[in-house]
Design a protein around this nucleic acid. Structure first.
Lengths: 231, 231
DNA sequence: GGGTATTGCCATATTTTTGCCTCATTCAGG
DNA sequence: CCTGAATGAGGCAAAAATATGGCAATACCC
């Protein structure tokens, strides 16, 4: 899913400028001209990053106020400030208030991108929200790579790492056939085709030990394996 | 425990300048004049933040090389670059390489402090230690990083710093598997995988000395360790 | 400076997992 | 319904990962 960036800036020219630049980089951008409309939008769903003009609205410190409010909504939401000059003394107050970085309005696109990438990178790494973080659920199957845990109808299936990757590879694409080669790639191993057959054998045995009638992991003669799923 | 900051800069005047400034702010600072001595020092224990001069040594890009090496050691270690001018085009390459921020050599102390505080704040927040002062409670475990105290069913467990960080890293995310590498990052050490195994061994021994049936710290074969918790 | 605690890692024992061999079955197509 | 190819079952030894006991090197503390 693309990262969603919100920019709150009342000078329409500048805002458009940033919006366009960021969109061209593949981000999903939404702009707001004032504090209130931004808050309204955020109350429903927070973006992944907010860029705020310090001197928002009439108030010289309108941006700070918004920053404070956003910090109240989320302590981890990345916030960047936009200031006229780098040396702006407000910058420090902004950072202390909870912002993560500040940009000057004339920042070059490469610089802007670099800073955004850095911020996202850190958020990702530290929050550990790898793409594998969520639970994969199919029928009675529930699988989490992060927790290295698989359950069938609620009872745990004691799969090994390799087995888990194979199940994951199959179950994430219900109905699609995965060749033995593809399964090797997903499990990050390089072995004989026959070995994959062995792994599947063990996987089935483990599932059947729990559910005698387990039949989700189907063989597609001459092609590979497939996860049969109704949902 | 005070944050430990390392600064790698060959111009002694500038280095002293930063060292003094940071020390006055209560940080534990250590300076290095060249890449090698910094690496030697870091090989055992990583600081909490590294500030690197881009133009380190004769090589114009000496700092980048060091950054790359450090990133290899730890993917989360905060790194800041020091450049002559803000507009330095190298800045971007630096950020892409894994740095988190860059400073100009003539940065004012308040600005410097603000940036450092911001970086530390984010690391702290995202790494979940809402405030290391808080007590982490899971099952019969009660742990405080700040107070360096751990109890199991009320009786104190005499863990060492490293051991405590490992337990903290695991217990914070019950059910989630942490790889040995991740544990190293959390404990801020750079060692052999085997050494993590050793630490776990000692941790278990200490817990079992108190509770013969202790089994919360489970090993996940091929993946790492996990804190099994009911709550 | 001497004693103690901590830490990293080695060698060795254990435990788990994995790869693949053999033989029985099944399958697609004549 | 026969046949070569593909797949399943059982089994096993090799490989990989982990547990343990030790020990030397540091770091730490009076």
């Amino acid at each position: 899913m693309p990262r969603r960036i919100a920019i709150v800036e009342d000078e329409i020219a500048i805002r458009r400028n940033f919006e366009d630049a960021l969109r061209r980089q593949g981000y999903q951008v939404s702009g707001y001209a004032d504090r209130q409309s931004a808050l309204d939008a955020f109350s429903r769903r927070l973006p992944d990053l907010v860029i705020i003009d310090v001197g928002l609205g009439d108030d010289v410190e309108g941006g700070f106020e918004l920053c404070r409010e956003l910090r109240g909504m989320s302590r981890v939401l990345p916030i960047m400030f936009l200031t006229a000059r780098d040396s702006d003394p407000d910058v420090i107050s902004g950072l202390r208030l909870g912002a993560d970085d500040y940009l000057t309005k004339d920042i070059s696109l490469p610089h802007l991108m670099a800073r955004i990438v850095v911020l996202f990178r850190r958020v990702e790494m530290l929050s550990g929200e790898q793409s594998t973080g969520a639970w994969l659920e199919r029928d009675a199957l529930r699988l989490s790579v992060e927790r290295m845990e698989v359950t069938w109808n609620g009872t745990a299936v004691p799969l090994t790492v390799t087995e888990l990757w194979i199940v994951h590879s199959l179950a994430r694409r219900p109905g699609h056939v995965r060749s033995r080669q593809q399964l090797m790639d997903d499990a990050n191993i390089l072995v004989d085709d026959q070995t994959i057959t062995s792994h599947v054998k063990r996987i089935r045995r483990k599932f059947k030990a729990i559910d005698k009638s387990f039949d989700k992991l189907a063989t597609v003669y001459g092609a590979g394996y497939r996860w049969n799923s109704s949902d």
